[in-house]
Computed example of a mutant assay.
Amino acid sequence: MSLMSLATGLVHASLVLFDPPADGRSADAATAAARGQRIMLQFNPEQLAVRRSATWTRPAGSGGNAGVPQPEFAQAGATSLSLQLFFDATTALGRRVEHDAAALLDCCRPARDKTVPRWAMLEWGTSTLTRFPAVITTAGVTYTLFAPDGTPLRAEATVELEEVGGSLPLTNPTSGGTDLVGAHGVHHFTQGDTLAGLAYHYYGDPAAWREIATANPSAVTDPLNIKPGTVLVLPRLGASRPGPVNHG
């Protein structure tokens, strides 16, 4: 039985905010995100809308009976992601809806030099659907329930993200992700993370969880019981690394 099949509990999505790498390369986003601010979502999104566009041009025809020229690719548009979030303090003791909303609205503030936008990434388990560095173009909150003293108790939020662009981290199993050169640095383990999930995200191979565990002997004494907040070093996987480990 694999480690992933043992960890079948609910995985909470999180929105990670971080300053862009100094050189602006989106390929280094995973390293920057590992040190960023993580907003754990109270409820997982029920829907994710992912959109991608492209620009096509039609060259001038030769006239006569040549017909309509076929379109030619001009450029790709940025991938966009939109989602709705819900906040509820009626059943969560000590939770403040306005604090969650303020953190979300602050996502639209600029980064370190007050001109460059902060980058964001939606992380949800091992899914690679939303794992691209993006900027938050819109964050809106609608309060729907209040306490007698006016304290917001429930709210709905809409978030729009737009892809930064450029080269992306190798997270696809078919993209050569197992030949990374230690570019990922460290990862702060959070509720819902699994070693196999991290191995898939950073290396494109869930079987690489053993190598993460081996690189962190003091932090990983039980692969199925790692405390949230634990900092894990992400080891270098060389090109000579053997095929997937049988961890059944």
Rank of each mutant, 00 (worst) to 15 (best):
L105G: 00
F18L: 13
A60R: 13
L10S: 09
G150A: 09
R112K: 11
P59A: 04
H12D: 10
R51P: 01
L105K: 03
M4H: 12
F86S: 03
P148V: 11
I39P: 00
G177I: 11
P45C: 02
S53W: 06
K114S: 12
A219T: 11
F43Y: 15
G140W: 01
L122W: 01
W209I: 02
T90M: 02
S14M: 10
K114W: 13
G197M: 01
T144H: 05
N172E: 11
D149I: 05
T128W: 07
D28I: 06
A147T: 03
R25T: 14
V220Q: 02
S167Y: 12
A213D: 05
L237Q: 13
E46Y: 06
G64S: 02
D205G: 01
A196M: 04
T55G: 10
L83D: 03
E123W: 05
A111Y: 09
F86M: 08
D19S: 15
N225D: 15
R58P: 00
H188P: 01
C108T: 07
H201A: 11
T144Q: 05
F43H: 14
D100W: 03
A102H: 08
T174I: 04
G197C: 03
K114G: 14
A60T: 15
A7L: 15
V164N: 07
T128I: 07
T55N: 09
T128M: 09
N65L: 13
H188Q: 11
L81R: 01
D222P: 06
W56N: 07
V164R: 10
V135P: 00
P133E: 05
P152I: 05
A208W: 09
V181L: 09
T144P: 02
T130N: 02
T158N: 11
T130D: 03
D23V: 04
L10D: 07
N225E: 12
T190Q: 15
T194A: 08
E156M: 09
A34I: 03
V159C: 00
N65E: 15
N65F: 13
M4L: 14
L161S: 03
A27N: 10
T55Y: 07
A32I: 10
L180H: 09
P242N: 09
T137H: 02
V181N: 11
M40E: 14
I39A: 03
L234S: 04
L10I: 15
